[in-house]
Design a protein around this nucleic acid. Structure first.
Length: 589
DNA sequence: GAGTTTGAAACT
DNA sequence: CAGTTTCAAACTC
């Protein structure tokens, strides 16, 4: 540090003009950024994708801003359709927790901007570069990560890829069938993410954002080589963080709820249903602060899971609802008990997931049958009218993604290839939407585009895929699709927000019941019992309302199609086999 | 806002 | 592959 800006790149400690070659850095020798005369063999993989970079897409406002939802909730699970899967503003922990948008207080904020000084934004140090985006409005100095220096930038990308072919791939993989621990990656239907390389933290306890795992809101895994790790399931310190900082944070609630829907994949939301660790040992007596790799404490995780059985069975964030109601080492200090603790049950969440999954399938069919251009126009028109039915159909892509996640969450039904292991993460990484409004580097897009988007889009537009090699050219109306996605996302999330608000309402009702009972009856004991009895009818309403709410979002009464593709009411649609059904869970039509 | 700490990336 | 350096973000004051 402390080197002057604007000097030769990479910066050297003893800068001179004597013609002495840059410090023996391979890349530096190969690249002459000042001359732009770099001659590097094209990356074998990237070569075929090399295209003349178009102007980066115009920035779009993240949908989160419109919905007043935490960006992470909105953006995490989805991928901008043309976003390259490997892009790390998607999946980079850094970008995940603080992607292009800040999430604190649930208020979407400005995009993340780098402050690079010495890397020229052409190394992975730079978040923008690492994410495959151009710097745009950053505070960086001597930036080459822009259109004007596309050639240099492309060379840097290739050099980076040469060093690490996976440099731009997701670091966090929600791996339902990972290669290392395939059988451990799911637990009770949840998709569990972990850092591909693992962190190497030494001093942060993996509870600060220095830690990529923590930043990605995932637990450390056996991939990590961290020391003194506290980022594991059942960790008191970790739980304390959740409760102390986020228990009352609406953003957290929304994120957690989002995780409930998406299966807590990747960076989405706070991983309130944390990654279970591979049981590599039975060191049940390891303390939470035991030094050594995280996996050495896996015994604790197992133990914690037993103590906290409902945690694994419910995808709803338990730090809120269950803290204080269950005895767990970490939670024992917590006395807070959510008013929703008796209202939200595992089946509620499953019900919600089921509804969303069904909706995604339905809308997929609808969209597939709808001409793309018409769809776009219809979406815009309907958005103005507030008729969400149109969006439901146009949402197909996103919902397909969500549906996948949900299905994974409930059915654990996924392929086992390495790529597919990454795919869900790609599709759900917050980067996708975090990148909204961020000019995506066309060069990186071209370099990085691969089968992931293809799969994603194939699900959305099975009949329109013509060129699977590049997602940016797959659709005849890419921009329209982007808008459709955005609008689709807005609608779905708005609806989901309504559902959450409904939950809040139920909680408030319950609270009111408590208060009234206390003041009017003066018999606390009777009040408590009566109130508990009242909670369930409310819950019954909740079950129905959740389902109907979402169903109506797709098919409002006035617009409900009568065809079998999209008109089918939720209750009529086949249910996910993995979702336990109960009578009071059945959506009420 | 400046300085420090931290850990990933880059490099040897 | 291990050790060191560089770097920029996270954090502290």
């Amino acid at each position: 540090m402390g080197q002057e800006e604007g000097k030769d790149f990479p910066p050297k400690k003893s800068d001179n003009n004597s013609g002495v070659e840059f410090p023996a850095k391979k890349l530096a020798r190969q690249l002459d950024f000042t001359q732009g005369s770099v001659v590097l063999p094209e990356h074998p993989q990237s070569q075929r994708h090399h295209v003349t970079p178009p102007t980066p897409p115009i920035a779009q406002k993240p949908m989160a801003a419109q919905n007043q939802l935490p960006t992470q909730v909105v953006t995490v699970p989805h991928m901008q359709h043309q976003h390259l899967p490997g892009s790390r503003k998607l999946e980079s922990p850094k970008s995940r927790s603080r992607p292009n948008t800040e999430l604190k207080e649930g208020t979407p904020k400005k995009q993340k901007q780098c402050n690079c000084k010495h890397s020229r934004c052409l190394k992975l140090y730079c978040e923008c570069f690492a994410s495959g985006t151009y710097c745009d409005g950053c505070n960086c100095a001597n930036c080459y990560n822009n259109v004007e220096n596309e050639s240099a930038r492309r060379e840097a990308v290739e050099a980076t890829l040469e060093r690490n072919p996976n440099a731009f791939r997701p670091k966090i993989a929600g791996s339902p069938h990972g290669t290392l621990d395939s059988q451990e990656d799911t637990r009770d239907g949840l998709i569990l993410a972990k850092h591909n390389k693992g962190c190497h933290c030494k001093k942060s306890g993996c509870l600060k954002k220095y830690c990529e795992c923590f930043q990605a809101n995932i637990l450390c895994s056996e991939n990590c080589k961290c020391m003194d790790c506290k980022n594991y399931e059942g960790s008191e310190e970790r739980l304390a963080l959740f409760h102390g900082d986020q228990a009352n944070n609406m953003a957290y609630i929304q994120q957690a709820a989002n995780a409930a829907i998406t299966g807590a994949i990747g960076s989405s939301g706070y991983a309130s249903t944390p990654v279970p660790k591979k049981k590599k040992g039975q060191e049940l007596f390891f303390g939470p602060t035991t030094k050594g790799p995280a996996y050495q404490r896996i015994g604790n995780f197992q133990q914690a899971s037993h103590i906290w059985p409902s945690l694994s069975s419910s995808s709803f964030p338990d730090p809120l609802a269950r803290a204080g109601t269950n005895t767990t080492p970490g939670a024992s200090k917590i006395s807070y008990r959510s008013l929703l603790a008796d209202i939200i049950q595992p089946q509620d969440v499953k019900e919600l997931c089921s509804v969303l999954a069904v909706l995604s399938e339905t809308t997929a069919k609808t969209l597939a049958a709808m001409p793309l251009i018409d769809e776009r126009n219809a979406t815009e028109k309907c958005a103005e009218d507030g008729r969400e039915i149109c969006l439901a159909s146009s949402t197909q892509g996103r919902l397909q993604s969500k549906g996948l996640d949900t299905e994974k969450a409930v059915a654990n039904d996924h392929s086992s290839t390495e790529d597919n292991k990454i795919d869900p993460d790609d599709l759900n990484s917050d980067g996708a939407d975090a990148l909204k409004g961020r000019p995506m580097s066309p060069g990186t897009l071209a370099l990085m585009c691969d089968e992931h988007d293809t799969m994603f889009l194939e699900a959305a537009f099975p009949s329109r895929l013509t060129d699977p090699s590049c997602s940016t050219s797959q659709l005849s109306d890419g921009q329209g699709v982007t808008e459709v996605y955005a609008e689709q996302e807005r609608i779905i999330l708005t609806k989901f927000r309504d559902c959450l608000n409904r939950l809040i309402t139920f909680g408030e009702i319950k609270e009111t019941n408590y208060s009234l009972a206390r003041s009017e009856l003066g018999n606390l004991k009777d009040t408590m019992s009566n109130d508990t009895g009242r909670a369930r009818p409310e819950l019954n309403n909740l079950h129905g309302s959740l389902s109907n709410d979402i169903a109506d979002s797709a098919f409002p009464p006035a617009s409900k199609p009568s065809s079998s593709t999209a008109a089918t009411s939720v209750s009529e649609l086949p249910r996910k086999p993995a979702l336990p059904q109960s009578d009071d869970n059945q959506p009420k039509s």
